[in-house]
């Protein structure tokens, strides 16, 4: 489903580009939940941003194919319409715009790009209600402005509601577990399972901690260090990392 091959990327613009990704190769087939772990500064968030198409990141070599399409040739909104969702580590506030308005416009824009009919207000509200209930989020929260005044945990839950409503084929979740207490973690984890655990979907789950992986059981775990995937294994790899730390595991690898 997602094939990243020998990806090199820099940040910092043409004046002083800093290489972050240095030949990253990773294949995630449909039906797989793939956890990415790794020390700070390894390039995890850069990977997420490059996949999303964020301005300021320059791909200098390599390729990314998404369902056979050249992902890097698409604009961010085209990637979204193609089925790519990016769960933000720091969700952004949009003052004066309600979550309902934001998501309805976003979803209908995706649908238009795919040649589908837009949803009516009623149809959309029903969908939004269902997904909010799944994440145990109050509908009142969806009527509030996008991420304005939300706590860290609320923002992450709102990200998951957005994912439920947009129903992507592939989700890149960048430290979705950070800032969550145990209860919220469980809710978010269950949300990921119910929305994304499917034979025709896949997830790239970027995290520092085992505790999310206890809820969302990954099929594969890869270690990202210094811009490359240095080791890939099953769920047991995450447990080893948690017990022994990156240095030991990477030295062994």
């Amino acid at each position: 489903m997602l094939e990243i091959t020998n990806l090199h990327a820099t940040v910092g613009g043409p004046d002083k580009p800093t290489p972050i990704l240095k030949g990253l190769t990773l294949h995630v087939p449909a039906g797989e939940i793939h956890a990415i772990m790794g020390p700070n500064g390894a390039g995890k968030s850069t990977l997420a941003n490059v996949l999303g198409g964020k301005p300021g990141y320059e791909v200098t070599a390599g390729s990314v194919t998404f369902n056979g399409q050249d992902l890097l040739a698409l604009d961010p909104h085209e990637r979204a319409a193609a089925g790519l969702f990016l769960g933000f580590q720091y969700p952004v506030e949009i003052p004066g715009v309600s979550n309902v308005q934001f998501l309805r416009e976003a979803l209908n824009s995706q649908r238009r790009q795919r040649g589908e009919e837009p949803l009516s207000g009623g149809e959309f509200l029903k969908l939004a209600k269902d997904k909010a209930a799944l994440l145990q989020m109050d509908m009142d929260m969806l009527k509030r402005q996008v991420n304005v005044g939300f706590s860290g945990g609320e923002k992450k839950r709102a990200e998951m509601v957005q994912m439920g409503i947009l129903n992507p084929a592939f989700a890149v979740l960048d430290e979705t577990d950070s800032g969550l207490d145990i209860d919220a973690l469980r809710i978010v984890g269950a949300g990921i399972n119910s929305i994304m655990r499917s034979p025709d979907k896949a997830v790239l789950l970027i995290t520092h901690y085992q505790r999310l992986l206890d809820v969302v059981r990954p099929d594969k775990v890869s270690v990202l260090a210094d811009g490359r995937i240095v080791e890939t294994g099953g769920p047991e790899l995450a447990l080893r990392l948690e017990a022994e730390g990156y240095d030991t595991v990477m030295a062994d690898g």
Binding site: P76, H77, A81, F88, I94, P95, G96, S109, Q110, Q113
Partner: peptide, 23 residues
């Protein structure tokens, strides 16, 4: 803000319009 809105599926001008209307 622009990237966030575009990542959710809005074209650039749609994203600007949304943010401006919120403002």
């Amino acid at each position: 803000q622009l990237f966030y809105a575009m990542q959710r599926g809005l074209g650039e001008e749609e994203a600007v319009a949304l943010i401006v209307n919120g403002f």
